[in-house]
Amino acid sequence: MSLKRKDLLGTRDLSVEEINLILETADSFKEVSGRDIKKVPALRGKTVVNLFFEPSTRTRTSFELAAKRLSADVINFTPSSSSVMKGETLLDTASNIEAMSADFIVIRHSAAGAPNILARGLRASVINAGDGSHEHPTQALLDLFTLREKKRDIRGLKLAIVGDIAHSRVARSNIYALMKFGAEVRVAGPPTMIPCDMERLGVTVFYNLDEALTGVDVIMMLRLQIERQGIALFPSIREYATCYGLTQERLRLADPDVLVMHPGPINRGVEIAPEIADSAASVILDQVTNGVAVRMAVLYLLSGVK
């Protein structure tokens, strides 16, 4: 079994069948991570390069573990200190890495569409680990995996994605994937954080968080990028937390069996109350666990193409 594609750039162009295949494969790989010897030989002799132009701990570690549990060789390449400073283009940097016989390039970049450039220019499989505000497909896939684990069927689920939708690749990848599976997606945040034309993607826009959360089965909180530069999108962290933070009172507006998700890293007390992050409703650490299995599935399924 394999995906009939070289690269994974986003969820927007994945079919339901492809997503199902990834999630089913992840299911069998999840079992591997529970073993004493957490390793299978599926990618022995293959080389995976983590090319991270932006700092990341969680995603890079997750990809690294996924590749190692499949017996691949893994190189972590952090270009900030090397060639990029010398003015080399992205494609040149990646071509040089490919020339050392890399089979997979996992890229995280601050510019939307950077993985698309590599996918066009390289023979290696390119996996998008987050590009600007565009997509973060493996995050959405692990979210879907977690939802299926906890809620069985995604169809008909009411979900609210809360926060800076405009600048969130997690939001985009989740919206594209969830819509394909027939979920009812709401997005909520201050109008400065919701792009124009958002409704044309099929989601419902809420500026009032209480209304957005009423009756939902799943709440996906986004991290507030406190470090963002430029003219602020909200007047203060205090006001943001008051208007758009997930509190115990707000949680009671949702379905009693509501799940709370967060792609991390969380700002405790800003977008999410600390006691919620640690509560039974929270599946934040399940997401992290499942991330390894989903990334193993993606690497494994893409390896069959070449």
Binding site: H134, R172, P195
Partner: peptide, 11 residues
């Protein structure tokens, strides 16, 4: 600033 930029995550 329209649908395509919103989908692609471009400013």
């Amino acid at each position: 600033e329209g649908l395509v930029a919103a989908e692609l995550g471009l400013q």
